[in-house]
Write a protein that binds this DNA or RNA. Structure first.
Length: 480
RNA sequence: GGCGCCAUCGUCCAGUGGUUUAGGACAGGGCCCUCUCAAGGCUCAGACACGGGUUCAAAUCCCGUUGGCGCUACCA
């Protein structure tokens, strides 16, 4: 049974990079009929916050790609401690009593001199001395004892990056336990992956070099080594790895939700970053994605998410916006209502009887043809749900053109006289009336759109008449 | 510094030795459609980082250079 996991750490919100990793994991597992595990990697108690956790859960929920199990790493600490113990007893790990270097500058300048492998003297400490110093309460970090006499290395086949190899001489004695006794990411992650029977690990390419260490841990602990697949990184427009710190809230998944993206459009956009269908198709429903997704065609090149931090109105990646329009217009309208309803509620226009009302569905179906974001439903649809709606400048201009107002008031009569109120009868009535008065139909068409919706743009005017209804249409024409 | 990954239009992708005057999508320009605006259709502009090989033939294979990215923490 294929089991994958997504293991975010709650040290910030869920960003596009993480969401894309989750998407690929999800597609991969679902395609194989496997299971998806969500594990919150909260071992870094210093930096983990509840707000981050909520943001992650919220973002994940919005994506509509459900997971099967949820775990918290902080609740599995006994497991990690036992594993550390076992490794120490086996001799696969040793205590390092060197005080921690908190000075980042120093650490990085030291590593600039060459490859750092271990702190001098520590790996050779006798068991007796090590035990004695530990018993005396001296703080220590537990380090993995990498093979040093062996000039071989660790090899694995990456699903994306193919054959990978790293010499033991290039793998340092990484820490398993911090001096405060907490497990590091490496230890906790591997122990949990092993214990949770994770079979396939798809994660960011920034972990590629970690995988060599992890394989060593899996093997030392006697777990089956999972299959690895590393995904190319998502970069910001500045070409640096997408991160909460550098790029801020703009890369947060909930930011896209709040901007009026449809989850399936957002998912579609993410799927196109580092993967593509062989036939160049770009617009996919989630089902189609599930059908077409092929781990073998995951790219190895990093891709840039084209957002614009300097443009408050148009910050979102243009292609994501375009995709949203595509999904907004092509999704079954009944399904779309799930997302439109909250918009109408926020605007204060929603009524309970709207639920399943075919007239409402028709209205939404019509007006969505001009919308791209969900927010458009509350920003631009007032006239369809309320008698009180603003009239924009360009619409006023249409009404003020020639003697449009007067003519529109007169148009109310033939409209009112219609016994059948359809696109065809309305059009005939309007065009006939225009001819009678010796004006171009366009004057009345644009004028009535302005009168009925307060807007100069939108669906076909005759369709608007129908949607608004005969009574209201007459009323609005007379009030112009 | 060391180790590794990557390198096709502004961006996202196609392309796995000849079918390529390098294809599609987004964004941009133009035209058409048209009652407006979208959508849609057509169209223009726009790229194989560089240098060496290998080969009858290279965007495609090899080497080097350059560039970008990542890792190099008792962060994940």
């Amino acid at each position: 049974m294929t089991r994958v996991r997504f293991a975010p750490s709650p040290t910030g919100f869920l960003h596009i990079g993480g969401a894309r990793t989750y998407l690929f994991n999800w597609l991969y597992a679902r395609k194989l009929g496997g299971q998806v595990v969500l594990r919150i990697d909260d071992t870094d108690t210093q930096r983990s916050t509840d707000a981050s956790l909520q943001s992650i859960l919220e973002g994940m929920k919005w994506l509509e790609m459900p997971w099967d199990e949820q775990h918290y790493q902080s609740k599995r600490q006994q497991l990690h401690a036992d594993a550390a113990d076992a490794l120490l007893k086996k001799g696969a790990a040793y205590r390092d009593f060197t005080p921690a270097t908190t000075d980042k500058e120093k650490a990085s300048s030291e590593s600039k001199k060459g490859a750092w492998l271990c702190n001098p003297g520590m790996r050779e400490l006798s068991t007796e001395e090590s035990d004695r110093r530990a018993a005396a309460g001296e703080p220590f970090a537990l380090r993995f004892r990498g093979p040093r006499e062996d000039n071989g290395g660790v090899a694995f086949k990456d699903m994306v990056y193919r054959k990978q190899f790293r010499k033991y001489a290039d793998i340092e004695d990484f820490a398993l336990l911090r001096s405060d006794g907490n497990p590091t990411y490496h230890l906790a992650s591997c122990v949990d992956d092993g214990d949770l029977k994770i079979t396939d690990i798809l994660r960011g390419q920034d972990h590629l070099t970690n995988s060599f260490k992890h394989i060593q841990i899996f093997e030392a602990l006697g777990y089956d080594v999972p299959k690895f697949g590393h995904l190319p990184l998502l970069l910001g427009p500045d070409q640096s790895k997408l991160s909460k710190r550098r790029h801020g809230a703009i890369v947060s998944v909930v930011n896209y939700r709040d901007a009026g993206f449809l989850p399936q459009a957002f998912v579609n956009y993410m799927s196109l970053l580092g993967w593509s269908s062989k036939d160049n198709q770009e617009v996919f429903t989630v089902d189609e994605l599930l059908e077409r997704f092929e781990p073998a065609s995951i790219l190895r090149t990093n891709s840039i998410v084209q957002f614009d931090e300097n443009d408050e109105a148009k910050w979102a990646p243009p292609k994501a916006v375009w995709l949203n329009g595509q999904h907004l217009r092509s999704m079954p309208v009944e399904k779309l209502m799930k997302y439109v309803k909250p918009e109408l509620e926020k605007a204060g226009w929603w009524k309970d009887e709207y639920d399943g009302d075919p007239a409402i569905l028709r209205t939404i179906d019509s007006i969505r043809s001009r919308y791209t974001m969900l927010g458009d439903f509350q920003l631009r649809a007032a006239a369809f749900f309320n008698d009180d709606f603003p009239t924009e400048e360009k619409a006023v201009a249409n009404l003020d053109k020639d003697n449009a107002r007067e003519l529109l008031r007169g148009l109310a009569d033939p409209i009112e006289a219609l016994t059948e109120f359809t696109h065809e009868t309305i059009e005939a009535a309007l065009r006939g009336y225009a001819e009678e008065n010796g004006v171009k139909a366009g004057l009345l068409i644009n004028g009535s759109r302005a009168a009925l919706t307060g807007q100069s743009v939108g669906p076909s005017a005759f369709e608007v008449f129908e949607l608004i209804g005969q009574q209201k249409t007459v009323r609005r024409l007379r009030a112009v």
